[in-house]
Design a protein around this nucleic acid. Structure first.
Lengths: 229, 229, 229, 229
DNA sequence: CATGAATGAGGATTCATTCAT
DNA sequence: TATGAATGAATCCTCATTCAT
């Protein structure tokens, strides 16, 4: 009954609601996929698991995604948006490139630890290897270049440096999650990274010692879960 | 009673002759698994693919492994043995710890490039994350400690350093395979690693410039393939 | 938000039209299972045999049943419904409890003989032992109690008596099917049962002598078999 | 026993050990089969489970049995021998046919309760239905005939009576095992059986009230288990 | 767009049985 | 005889995908 209302009006004033509806369903799917990963980790997740969790018909999936990969990539983007936004906010008053990098790394690690979610999802992501942190890499590269221009970093190939950093970060995160390395490894990594960028160890140490200012974990907009009547 | 006892003694008698057969079959399976990975990479590989390739009945697989993971782990071990043996040979006359590490890294990268095999297999290996290079890690750790004792490296936590190196290497390898980084990245990585261990950049550069002495790729002992009569 | 709510309401809307399809498919599976048992008896019956016979895709089975046992239990229930309905009809004008029991037993045996079906299926049913005739047991128990109230039966523990009767009936049926006992055994069993319930032998004999009025074998509603175009 | 002696003497003196060995292996298989049933009940039991348990090579099975059914039938016989021997001993001084039957039934039930073994195995026995108690049926039939001759029982068709008794006993046993009937059901069954054979209820009650004289559970000759060195 | 029943190829796993040693 | 490796048909079960409603 309600349902019909939207469609009826297709024409005039709520041209808005259709796209809204689409978006909502899509988001429900993305969230369902994410949550399932977080709960089950490595385990196989079927499309029907996802639609089931999203309280949506099986076929509906194909109105939004072609393949399972697609939805997972959407999850990643979803995550990254949150991440990037928060980080930008967090660093808006920082000028020193070294500090910017330190904060980024620390924030990243903080997420990885606090938010078992992010952590385990990135860990999982059967997706194309390095792909995962892509958006972030742009930021990182920019940071490095800024540092080089400012004469703080000694790096011949910023692109290479950035890639290596990504690798180090990723590795540390996994190793910590693993238990292979203790939690202090994260600070150490930040420090080694700066050292690698050419900062004297003392400076590197100093910069990485400042604790990360407290930051709201990325707010998870609640999804309306359909209640079974 | 006598009778029974006699039979008992017969039991593990042939633990010697039969095992040959067992070993051969097992090896055939391991090789088949490896080869398939090398050919198909990520793609799905079914157990029947493996047994088919190994010229062995479907059920035979289960006489040797419980799960597909098991056989892949066996492949890794197989590989590592070859790798470690060759590397040991290669470094037997080297004394300088920095050089030892440089050679190890370079040899590793060489394998990764020459041998699409090793490369793609490590890439693949959905196996427990960082785990993959384990044996090698022991060697690496020993190298670092030796360097520290010798006063060449400045490292507070060798374990951490080793872990980070593993991560860097792994990352570089993947990125190169990916095309994200060019092939020169490998030399650069070695250099950065040494730098990270506390060597002055000039030294690091010097040490990593020596080309790796030519080395026979690990010989693959041929497996006797059963011929269908 | 509106949007979401709307969708919710759409949800169980067609619980009416679709279910018809579901019911039909389910019934086809149940029937297929039954028929196969009837044809093959003890022999192994695979799930694919069932779906094949039901003209239905392999996977479809799992939309309705978890396990093979499940479908067989459904068959039993299916049968029992038919049985109970017919029996009720058959006895609707009978008042005497002894006669009611006699008729029930005889009808049961009749089915077992006429209908190789019922017979062999019960024989088969590796299902939870005595369980098989459960619904029927309720009826039987009620009959006994009625007889006791009416002062015709002398039974201390109706529940026990009922159980024993079930056992005797079942046994007789199997033994007859077996050839161990001749067909007259069924009348005898009915007679012994009444005797066991405390009736004088003469009466028991008399009551069990009346032939069972002819009765339509339970009509099998035809299942619509999907025709392959 | 005679039988065995004959074979032994077949030639000269140690023609003895060979057949002994055969017998031992055979018995090991039979016992293994039995024990597995007792432990696992309904669950699937493979031939390799049996040979494994018997500490015997897979192929060995086929030196003794053609099929799995065969070994299970052997188990039944094994059991029955024990059962019959003990029962004969137990009743050797009893003259009254009613009492003989009562004792037989009670002994049987006792086994079923004490010896969860016997119980669960008979319950299981996917084997041809009524088959299970065959040997026993001969005894039972003889008992009935004796009772009829002695004028204690009023039975027209002893064969039928025996069959029905078997059925009742079997059923009671299962129902008790099931929990459907309480343990006292066994005494009741014995009593109803006698009643059914024509004894006045008072007598039936009296005869079935005597407790069964204590009896050693059938001794299980230990099988030599091969110890893994 | 939404739905969910139907599908069937694909893959894992079991196990009775054979046979060379 | 005893052995146990090898076998492969048989079976179960999953799940991405289609499609009529």
């Amino acid at each position: 009954m309600e349902a019909t209302r939207n469609r009826d009006n297709l024409h005039h004033l709520d041209e808005v609601s259709l796209p809204d509806r689409r978006k909502a369903t899509r988001k429900a799917l993305v969230r369902a996929a994410r949550d399932l990963v977080l709960e089950r980790g490595h385990e196989k997740i079927s499309i029907q698991d996802i639609t089931g969790r999203a309280q949506v018909g099986t076929g509906t999936f194909y109105n939004y995604f072609q393949t399972k990969q697609d939805v997972f990539e959407a999850v990643i983007l979803d995550y990254r948006e949150e991440f990037t936004a928060t980080l930008t906010e967090l660093r808006k008053n920082i000028k020193d490139p070294a500090m910017m990098i330190a904060v980024a790394l620390k924030y990243y690690f903080r997420l990885a630890q606090d938010n078992a979610e992010w952590n385990s999802f990135v860990t999982f992501s059967g997706l194309p290897g390095t792909h995962v942190l892509h958006q972030d890499e742009q930021q990182c590269l920019a940071d490095i270049k800024r540092g080089v221009s400012a004469g703080r970093f000694k790096v011949e190939d910023p692109h290479f440096a950035q890639s290596l950093i990504t690798g180090m970060v990723r590795h540390t995160m996994l190793a910590v999650a693993d238990g292979t390395l203790g939690p202090s490894a994260t600070d150490n990594t930040a420090r080694y990274v700066l050292r690698m960028l050419g900062l004297p160890d003392l400076v590197a140490k100093a910069v990485t010692q400042d604790p990360l200012p407290p930051v709201a974990a990325p707010r998870k907009e609640p999804v309306n879960i359909r209640v079974i009547p």
